[in-house]
Design a protein around this nucleic acid. Structure first.
Length: 822
RNA sequence: GCCGCCGUGGUGGAAUGGUAGACACGUUGGACUUAAAAUCCAAUGAGGGCAACUUCGUGACGGUUCGAAUCCGUCCGGCGGCACCA
């Protein structure tokens, strides 16, 4: 059953025909381009950014509609408020799904992308989104990725791009490298075969160089709190001590944030990948160690760090010395220690660390308590991870954990056992993929000169057409098989060189796209300086919560780097986004994600066809709080359709020169206030609700007018239409035109509310006894405590409740309530 | 496992320290209609009462407060992220 089908039997008026009306206005917007942003203007600028879509073959998702509509509303409102608004859109088109789609359907990714972008464009236009279509960017366009490559070269020249060996997922039967997503439960998604880690030379970006800045500068920006916390935790700044434990001729540094527990160390644990493992291992233990290391290759980092599943480890038959105590302790390897973090080695303090404790219990390692809560001794068989006072720690006994950390860090430095160290959880960014559908990395390998950057004037390095897009069974990118691409002269010495055949990850193009919108057609530079100075920073950036740690951090990093090397003018701020918010996902009915395999996908084209874009937009705004996930409910569309119908039918029930009742006037101004404020706070659901309340009130008045009372004032109705316009732009334009207005409703000023009219003179005063509601009385809003008390006590209900009770205390909240404590 | 978010009627949600359930869906009853649809009107958290009214109620338990859906603690459940999906 289609909830949007409707028949209208009203005699005089044409029923609301969304197809005709929406087409009419979309055509007009297409021709007249009223949403084109001006470079430079006397108006204040407002750069409003939504994450650009990945143009998949499935087309636009109803989940896209939510943020796009929300920020279309904000953009339209800001224009009405007199801002020069930049609201651009583009396509993030490189990546795995398109490549896999191309392989499956035996078409080129270029053609697939072209087709998908055309479809997405059509769909977005049919939603009436007020994007500036003249600035569209496409990350797979060589005019675009030329500059992605150019930025990579700047990283390279500034020593922030380097090559190193990193493990990749390798399918033993397909013999190809796999993305993490293609590994399901440790098996290859395509063939179900075994997957293991295999080392591969990879390009890296030194994002850790910017870790501190990325952390600190979060204080300068207006991101929602949960986003800031997630980023901070991801960067994971921790201050501690790096201290050397000596073993034979090697120093093994460990990093710890709990140097106060140093006297409780009873073993040392290395990650299985630690370079010293094979050097220190005792021959008697060699087989076991090798077997263990092999096993670890098959686990993901997440599996490795789950404590309760099962911690495992083996002895390597060597020992290390705790520099503070001179004690010899055994060395273990265990997969819960990750090679990438810290030094890849930890000191084991089972008494005061959860994972160490579990490990020590399992393998019978000594547990030595050195921190106690106050003067009580900790229970001997327990783990205590909080702070406390040092015990069993020699001359440091009795200090608090906090003091001990300071004293011990100084002591360690003085004795040259180690040094204070700030560590980050953040790791450098693996920047190469052995895939076809990405930006070629613009580097040439020369036997004589090493890694040589492609000269900037030779950019872009074009992605050549190939026969096969499949990854190769040598682990190389498909580009490696194209000799004309690979074999080039070294730009430095002119000798024989080989082009880098790895491509960049999808994240590359999206790390700077917001800068390209500013000057999307510039052939000389990635963007003009003056335009950058005008538009940067982005005033408001909205995207998915799922991009908080990767894309958002990556793009902040790229921007900061470009800013530091002077490519971004120094008049711009050091942060790209002033404000960042995030939307909730649209889920299928039942709270599940929409997916083709589950068959629960809602196609936006069908919704537009049945109900029209305006009803669709209102529905998505009304469905629930913007920042929380929401479930799609087809029946909900019906309610929005009824609302639109009511507004539409009000058109012919209005007349000029009507005296509006005070109550209606007050409601109008409260609505103006509420809708305006709610839009700014992303509370679109309650904004729509406020518009419904006003509409219902006007409908009631209109019905009364049929019975001889006054009609609805045109002025009030016009205000309603203006408030509704950002939500339902086609409908509003059409009604506006019907009301004999020559100009677009979006040329109107956003209404202001009258403070006097918003204030209530009379309120319902809540009367509570012991915090429980017992009565309400109508009183003037500024009633004094004495008067309120007197009035409250004269209420019959209250008298009854207070019988034989003694009033101990009276709490009065002005304009709200009075509470008697008995 | 770690980090973040969320948990309220039959349903989506509103209320973020002060009247729990705005607005909307659904359901039931009524009006209009030959009938249906559409539209309009009324009722609608649960229990008790003829009624006035009253008791209970915001995932669970505990705490803070005159007063807690809201703040704190523990637990349970769901969702997002965990670095090669985008």
């Amino acid at each position: 059953m289609d909830p949007c089908l409707r028949r209208d039997d009203r005699k005089n008026m044409q029923p609301y025909n969304h197809k005709q009306i929406e087409k009419k206005w979309q055509k007009k917007w297409e021709e007249e381009k009223p949403f084109k942003a001006e470079d430079f203007s006397d108006k204040e600028k407002f750069y409003c950014l939504v994450e650009f879509p990945y143009p998949s073959g499935d087309g636009l998702h109803v989940g896209h509609v939510r943020p796009y509509t929300a920020f279309d509303i904000i953009s339209r409102k800001r224009r009405m408020e007199g801002y020069n608004v930049l609201f651009p859109i583009g396509f993030d088109a490189f990546g795995l799904p398109t490549e896999n789609y191309a392989i499956k359907h035996k078409i080129s990714p270029v053609d697939a992308t072209k087709k998908n972008i055309a479809n997405f464009t059509k769909q977005m236009k049919s939603l009436g989104l007020s994007f500036d279509w003249d600035r569209v960017v496409n990350t797979t366009d060589s005019d675009y990725y030329k500059w992605t490559q150019w930025i990579f070269l700047q990283f390279f020249k500034n020593d922030l791009a380097y090559k190193t060996t990193m493990p990749i997922n390798w399918c033993l039967s397909c013999k190809i490298g796999l993305a993490n997503e293609e590994v399901v439960d440790g098996k290859c998604e395509r063939c179900g075969g075994e997957v293991e880690k295999r080392d591969k030379e990879q390009w890296m970006l030194r994002i850790t160089e910017y870790a501190d800045k990325l952390d600190k500068d979060l204080d300068k920006v207006d991101y929602s709190e949960r986003i800031k916390i997630q980023q901070k935790n991801w960067i994971g700044k921790s201050e501690g001590v790096e201290i050397n434990f000596n073993s034979e001729e090697y120093d093994i540094p460990v990093f710890t944030t709990r140097i106060d527990t140093i006297f409780g160390v009873t073993a040392m644990v290395l990650s299985p990948e630690h370079p010293l493992v094979m050097k220190l291992v005792n021959d008697d233990y060699l087989d076991e160690v090798k077997e263990y290391v092999e096993k670890c290759k098959k686990k993901t980092d997440i599996e490795r760090t789950i404590v309760e599943k099962e911690v495992t480890g083996v002895l390597i038959g060597a020992s290390a010395t705790n520099p503070m105590t001179g004690e010899k302790i055994p060395i273990w390897i265990a997969d819960y220690v990750l090679a990438q973090y810290g030094t890849g080695a930890v000191m084991m303090v089972p008494a005061h660390d959860e994972r160490d404790f579990v490990f020590a219990k399992k393998y019978g390692i000594d547990i030595k308590h050195v921190i106690a809560l106050s003067h009580q001794e900790a229970k001997l068989d327990d783990v205590y991870t909080d702070e406390g006072y040092l015990i069993n720690s020699g001359e440091f006994d009795g200090l608090t954990s906090q003091d001990a950390r300071i004293k011990l860090a100084d002591y360690v430095e003085m004795k040259e056992y180690g040094r204070k160290q700030v560590n980050f959880h953040l790791r450098d960014w693996v920047f190469s993929r052995q895939r076809y559908w990405g930006e070629p990395i613009p580097i040439i390998h020369c036997e004589e000169c090493g890694e040589v950057p492609v000269p900037e004037e030779d950019l872009p390095v074009l992605l050549p057409s190939v026969e096969h897009y499949e990854p190769t069974d040598t682990g190389e990118s498909p580009l490696a098989s194209i000799e004309s691409f690979v074999n080039v002269k070294c730009p430095k010495c002119g000798g024989d060189g080989k082009r880098e055949t790895d491509t960049m990850p999808n994240w590359a193009g999206s790390s700077w796209y917001f800068l390209r919108y500013i000057d999307s057609k510039n052939k000389e530079a990635f963007a003009d300086d003056k335009k950058l100075r005008y538009w940067v920073p982005v005033d408001w950036y909205n995207g998915g919560m799922e991009h908080t740690t990767l894309h958002l951090l990556y793009s902040r990093f790229w921007y900061k780097f470009l800013f530091d090397i002077g490519v971004i003018p120094k008049e711009c701020k050091s942060e790209p986004y002033k404000k960042r918010t995030s939307h909730g996902l649209i889920l299928a009915k039942g709270g599940e994600k929409m997916s083709k395999s589950k068959g629960n996908v809602v196609n936006p084209d069908e919704v537009i066809d049945d109900c029209g874009a305006d009803i669709f937009r209102i529905y998505e705004m009304f469905v629930g709080p913007f920042e929380q996930p929401a479930e799609w409910d087809t029946q909900g569309l019906g309610g929005c359709r009824r609302f639109v119908d009511k507004v539409w039918s009000l058109q012919e029930r209005i007349s000029e020169n009507v005296d509006t009742e005070k109550d209606v006037e007050k409601l109008l101004h409260k609505t103006i206030k509420k809708v305006g404020e709610d839009i700014e706070e992303l509370k679109f659901n309650t904004a729509v609700s406020a518009l419904m309340i006003l509409t219902n009130e006007l409908v009631k008045l209109a019905l009364d007018s049929d019975r001889g009372k006054e009609k609805v004032s045109e002025d009030v109705f016009k205000k309603l239409v203006i408030l509704l316009a950002p939500f339902a732009p086609h409908l509003a334009e059409e009604i506006w035109e019907n009301l004999d207005n020559k100009k677009s409703v979006f040329k109107e000023k956003w209404p202001e509310y009258d403070k006097e009219l918003v204030r209530d003179e009379k309120i319902d005063l809540i009367i509570q006894i012991n915090g429980k509601l017992r009565d309400t009385i109508k009183v003037s809003a500024d009633i004094s405590e004495e008067d309120a008390k007197e009035k409250a006590l004269s209420s019959e209900k209250i008298k009854k409740h207070l019988e034989k009770q003694e009033i101990k205390k009276v709490i009065f909240v002005k304009g709200k309530l009075i509470n008697f404590v008995v």
